[in-house]
Amino acid sequence: MSISLDDIQAPIAQEMELFEKKFRTSMKSKVLLLDRIMSYIVKRKGKQMRPMFVFFIAKLFKDNIGEATYRGAALVELLHTATLVHDDVVDDANYRRGFFSVNALWKNKIAVLVGDYLLSKGLLLSLQNDDFEILKIMSNAVREMSEGELLQMEKARRLDITEEVYFDIIRQKTASLIASCCAVGAASAGASADDIEKARLFGEKVGLAFQIKDDLFDYGTAEIGKPVGIDIKEKKMTLPLIFALSKADWLTKRRVIYNVKNNNGNNKRVQEVIDYVKKSGGIEYTVQAMNRFYAEALAILSTFPASPSRTSLEQLIAYTIEREK
């Protein structure tokens, strides 16, 4: 019988429940429109993976979770939600997790202001409680996420992304957030500078493995919910395609890149690219890369003392890496 997310969450179930209440309260506003949007955002939250990482890591250092950890988890959620609201405006996206996005319901101007409000809420939460270390960690993460997004946009025009640039992009865009969650968890529990850095590095490896797993979904490596070929349709260069192109002769490379650049949602062209990547060993190569980061993350985690939280972290990573959708 496979383990469920609820089973994995067991060692921090009480903390997560209390966090929910604290977070809902922190999202309230006297401005009616803002309050309505905040309650909409709170209702449609996802699996809350990020606060889970904060609490699990904090519990590696301290059994009794203090207020600083709750504030750290709230800061993570506030800043992350702000970036998502702004992302939907940038991408002109009407949906997020199957719900209408804030910009779809209230238009771009309001969505940008809501994102700004969430950012300021997070900053004030930390500053009012002198959580300077935690604020520094999260501010770095937001900077990195923005840089990663801009680097991807810069490279996307020419589709000349090397493997090195790809890893730079996903390290900044995706891995930096999970890395900062883990660093925040450690810092909020009073861990040493060395342990905070070790926790951050663990989160970075996990984040890289998670993003590579997501990239594999685009090639339909399992019967999954995500439509196949979305990244190719959006002209995103991911590891399976980058590897396949690195092995191609000049003419093949030109043809594949032409199909990516000019697919215009044409399923036949997208399928041609997918078939080429599979034939060139791009999937196997990418799975190896994912497993390498997964193993490195586990190796770092094993240096922390054994505990229910450490076991849950191992299960959480396995759950995400092995998931089919």
Rank of each mutant, 00 (worst) to 15 (best):
M1A: 11
S2H: 11
S2T: 13
S4W: 13
D6I: 10
I8W: 09
P11H: 06
I12M: 11
A13G: 00
E15I: 15
K21C: 00
F23L: 13
R24T: 08
K30C: 01
R36L: 08
R36Y: 10
R36H: 13
S39L: 02
K45G: 15
Q48H: 10
M49H: 11
F61M: 04
F61D: 02
K62L: 06
I65A: 03
G66V: 08
E67N: 14
E67Q: 15
G72A: 15
A73F: 07
L75P: 03
E77W: 10
T81S: 15
T81L: 09
L84E: 11
L84F: 14
V85C: 11
H86G: 09
D87P: 09
D87L: 09
V90S: 05
V90Q: 12
D91Q: 12
Y95D: 03
R97G: 07
F100K: 15
S101G: 09
V102I: 14
N103K: 09
A104W: 12
A104H: 15
K109D: 15
A111M: 07
G115R: 10
Y117M: 10
L118T: 03
L118G: 05
K121P: 12
G122W: 08
L124E: 10
S126M: 14
Q128W: 04
F132R: 14
L135K: 02
K136M: 07
M138K: 03
S139G: 14
V142W: 00
E149A: 01
Q152I: 05
A156I: 06
L159S: 04
D160M: 03
E163F: 08
V165Q: 09
Y166K: 08
I170V: 12
R171P: 00
A175R: 07
S176N: 10
L177A: 04
I178K: 02
S180Q: 04
C182F: 02
G190T: 12
G190K: 11
S192M: 06
D194C: 09
D195I: 01
E197S: 15
E204T: 10
E204V: 08
K205G: 01
V206W: 03
A209D: 06
A209K: 09
F217A: 00
T221V: 15
A222S: 15
A222V: 12
E223T: 05
K226W: 12
P227Q: 04
V228D: 00
G229N: 07
D231M: 07
I232R: 06
K233W: 05
P240W: 11
I242D: 02
I242W: 01
I242H: 04
A244Y: 07
A248K: 10
K253A: 11
R255D: 13
N262Y: 12
G265N: 06
N267L: 13
R269E: 13
V273D: 02
Y276G: 01
V277P: 06
Y285L: 03
Q288T: 07
A289I: 08
R292W: 04
F293C: 08
A295C: 09
E296A: 14
L301F: 00
S302W: 01
F304P: 02
F304M: 02
A306F: 05
S307I: 02
E314G: 05
L316W: 03
Y319K: 09
R323L: 02
